[in-house]
Computed example of a mutant assay.
Amino acid sequence: MKRLLPILSLVVLILFPSITFAEEGKESKGITENEKRAGFTVQAVLPDNQINDRISFYHLLMKPEQSQTIQVKIMNTSPEKQTYKVEVINAATNRNGLITYDKREKKPDKSMKLPITDVAKPKNKEATVDAFSEGQAEIDIQTPAEPFQGILLGGIRISLKSEGKEDDSKGMSVKNTYGYAIGLVLTEQDFAPVYGETDLKLTKLQPEIDYGSKVLEASIQNPHPEAMQKLTAEGKIVRKGQKSTLAKNSLEDVKIAPNSVFPFQIDWGMQEVSAGEYTFIGKIKGKTKTWNFKEDFTITREMAEKMNKQTAFRIFIPSWWMVSFYVVGTLTAVVTAWLIIRLIKRKKGREMHEKE
């Protein structure tokens, strides 16, 4: 068990909208600026079945039909009593190639037979801690009778509950402002690797609008119960049967969660998208394996019009602007010509006056 390779720390400090990863093995010296803003810190209380006690997240060796409750220590460093929201969320992969624990409503990939949210659940959805005091959140784990292979990966999120009130009738909900996510890895084989490079598959190509940009999204599936790390991803779009690159993208240090889809995106940029046949050419390279993808896709006229119309970054010149441009240009030319003629006449008049 101790021979397992060091694992990237899955403890995440969430200060919306950015997410940063803490470095494994480094202890905090005093309270950081982010912790001051959050007003609390958390710490995993590692149980006896922790596989590697040198890391700061849970990596537990389980057995079929095992019941266990684990604790997360919550230290309230603020001068006020605070309430925290407690959640367990399946690990997912975002378009930047990072493993995240913020996709609450995202359905697990079809390759995931046993989501960790079916196994680990908060004993209470909220925890309250007095000012300058220490409390805890508890997570109940119940493994099924049928053994599972590989790892289950998710995050235990402890978020500061805002003072806003929930109003289901108006579609409003409590907003979380600050929080932490602690990685939770479950396995029933102490030899099961957390990271591997078994296989990747291209399952879908979808031209779409994402955050106002025209993109082609290539769904790269990791169908196995192991995470991937230190991958490089690159891809480009060409016209079918041609070699000239229309758009491309590349990412370094990509990580993919177990049984999840990496939504690799290529931005078309400012260019207009036209209907036609295209080809996606992609490559993902790991330490021991390389996957090459090549697949044709079609952009219909309706799809192209929709993408060009809805993008927030397209150059739009209204017809009235063109008319105004020509009118102003003509007036400017007329006024300039009149001023020049007037200047010439005045100059001639002065010359005649001097001769007299």
Results as ranks from 00 to 15, higher is better:
Ala131Tyr: 06
Ala131Phe: 03
Phe132Asn: 13
Gly135Cys: 08
Glu138Cys: 08
Glu138Met: 06
Glu138Arg: 08
Asp140Ala: 14
Asp140Trp: 06
Thr143His: 03
Gly150Arg: 04
Leu152Phe: 01
Gly154Pro: 08
Gly155Met: 05
Ile158Asp: 05
Ile158Tyr: 00
Ile158Arg: 03
Ser162Pro: 08
Glu163Met: 05
Gly164Gln: 10
Glu166His: 02
Asp168Val: 10
Gly171Gln: 00
Gly171Lys: 00
Met172Asp: 11
Ala181Tyr: 01
Ile182Thr: 14
Ile182Met: 10
Gly183Arg: 02
Leu184Asn: 03
Leu184Glu: 06
Leu186Pro: 11
Thr187His: 04
Glu188Lys: 06
Asp190Ser: 14
Asp190Thr: 11
Asp190Ile: 13
Ala192Val: 14
Pro193Ala: 02
Val194Ala: 04
Gly196Ile: 14
Glu197Asn: 06
Glu197Met: 04
Leu200Trp: 01
Leu202Met: 07
Thr203Pro: 15
Lys204Gln: 10
Leu205Gln: 12
Gln206Ser: 12
Pro207Asn: 04
Pro207Gly: 06
Ile209Gln: 10
Asp210Gly: 12
Asp210Arg: 11
Tyr211Met: 13
Ser213Pro: 12
Ser213Met: 11
Lys214Gly: 13
Val215Cys: 07
Glu217Ser: 15
Ala218Ile: 08
Ser219Met: 04
Ile220Gln: 09
Pro223Ser: 06
His224Asp: 14
Pro225Asp: 09
Glu226Gly: 14
Ala227Glu: 10
Met228Ile: 12
Gln229Tyr: 10
Gln229Phe: 12
Leu231Ile: 13
Thr232Pro: 15
Ala233Arg: 04
Gly235Phe: 00
Lys236Ala: 10
Ile237Ser: 09
Ile237Val: 10
Arg239Trp: 01
Lys240Trp: 01
Gly241Asn: 09
Gly241Met: 04
Gly241Trp: 01
Gly241Thr: 09
Leu246Asp: 15
Ala247Gly: 14
Lys248Phe: 07
Lys248Ile: 09
Leu251Asp: 08
Val254Thr: 12
Val254Tyr: 02
Lys255Arg: 15
Lys255Glu: 13
Ile256His: 03
Ile256Thr: 15
Pro258Gln: 05
Asn259Ile: 06
Asn259Val: 09
Val261Trp: 00
Phe262Glu: 07
Phe262Cys: 05
Phe264Ile: 08
Gln265Ser: 07
Ile266Glu: 13
Ile266Phe: 07
Gly269Pro: 15
Gly269Phe: 07
